[in-house]
Amino acid sequence: MSDTDNEDTPFRAGTVAVLGRPNVGKSTLVNALVGAKVSIVSPRPQTTRHRLLGIATFADGQLLLVDTPGIHREQKRAMNRMMNRAARGAVDGVDAAVLVIEAGRWTDEDDLAFRALREAKVPCVLVVNKVDKVADKGQLLPFIAQVADGREFAAVHPVSAQKNKGLEALAKTLVGLVPESPPQYGEDEITDRSERFLAGELVREQLMLRLGEELPYSTTVEIERFEEDGELLRIAAAIWVERDGQKPIVIGKGGERLKAISTGARVGMEKLFGRKVFLETWCRVREGWSDDEAALRRFGYSD
Rank of each mutant, 00 (worst) to 15 (best):
S2C: 07
D3P: 02
D5E: 14
N6Y: 14
N6Q: 14
E7P: 12
F11N: 03
T15G: 01
V16N: 00
L19N: 11
V24W: 11
V24I: 02
S27E: 08
S27K: 07
L29W: 03
L29G: 12
L33R: 00
L33K: 09
K37V: 02
S39E: 10
S39R: 00
I40D: 02
P45N: 06
T48D: 06
L53S: 09
P69S: 00
P69Q: 00
R73E: 14
E74Q: 14
M79T: 08
N80K: 07
M83F: 06
R85F: 09
A87K: 02
A87R: 01
G89H: 10
A90C: 03
A90N: 01
A90L: 04
D95W: 07
V100W: 07
R105Q: 15
W106N: 06
D108T: 14
E109W: 03
E109T: 05
D111A: 15
D111S: 14
L112K: 10
A116Y: 01
L117W: 08
A120Q: 09
A120S: 11
A120N: 05
A120R: 10
V122F: 10
L126R: 00
V128N: 08
K130I: 04
K130P: 06
D132N: 02
K133C: 12
A135E: 12
A135G: 08
D136I: 10
Q139W: 08
L140F: 10
L141V: 12
Q146H: 12
A148L: 10
E152T: 15
F153G: 05
V159K: 05
A161Q: 04
A161P: 06
G166L: 04
L167K: 06
K172A: 15
L174A: 02
L174R: 00
V175A: 08
V178Y: 08
P182I: 11
P182G: 12
G186R: 15
D188Y: 13
T191S: 15
R193W: 10
S194M: 05
E195F: 09
L202F: 13
V203C: 02
Q206E: 11
M208R: 02
L209F: 09
L211F: 02
E213S: 08
P216C: 05
T219L: 03
E222N: 08
E227L: 13
E227G: 00
L233C: 01
L233T: 00
A238M: 13
I239Q: 06
G245Y: 04
G245D: 07
Q246P: 01
K247H: 04
I249K: 01
I249T: 01
V250C: 05
K253N: 12
G254V: 03
G254H: 00
G255W: 01
G255Q: 08
E256T: 13
K259W: 03
K259Y: 03
T263K: 13
G264I: 04
R266Q: 02
K271Q: 15
K271S: 14
K271T: 14
L272S: 13
L272H: 13
G274Q: 01
R275E: 04
W289K: 00
S290V: 14
G300W: 03
S302H: 15
S302R: 15
